[in-house]
Amino acid sequence: MEPITTHTGVGVPLRQSNVDTDQIIPAVYLKRITKTGFDDALFSSWRKNPDFVLNQPEYQHGTVLVAGPDFGTGSSREHAVWALKDYGFRAVIASRFADIFYGNSAKQGLLTAKVAQTDVELIWKELENTPGAEVTVDLESRTVRCGSVDTTFEIDNYTRWRLMEGLDDISLTLKEESSIREFEASRLPFKPKTLPARI
């Protein structure tokens, strides 16, 4: 994973709450077996509507999505994160994120910044009044800036550190190999095993 410290790019105001992962990427696109090539799938139903924000020329090259609360609810599909990244998004700003989506984003280096809904409103206004305006998400100082808006966001230290260092979770965990072995040696003996099959 590429280390990230800060990102600046065109902000896209998505005035909608409860954007579930079925909307971010409908199930028909989940049949693919790759991690890339999902840019056409992102918001594919909504993109058919000419009024949809991503169909406005000013926002087409947006890289920072600014959405309503409870972004990424529903299905655990990591494809939602891949699709956002493939389209070009590098950061999503919302007041609340669904847990699994939030975790998936961190694994893939998509910045997710939780800011208060009142600030989201201000950023929306800024982006609508000046289409094409840029938003900065600064992981180092934990701030989001857009026009006259300058606010902080929450992110836990561990996730921030991993993103800034670009660290891969599996390698980190494999350093605990001896603890894993130790744990395995003391597991309760009656825990089930799938192999050999008992049917």
């Binding site: 991690k35 655990s76 599909r77 494809h79 975790g103 998936n104 694994k107 893939q108």
Partner: peptide, 9 residues
Amino acid sequence: GIGTSEVEH
């Protein structure tokens, strides 16, 4: 429920 990166993990 977990995402695909976690499945790999």
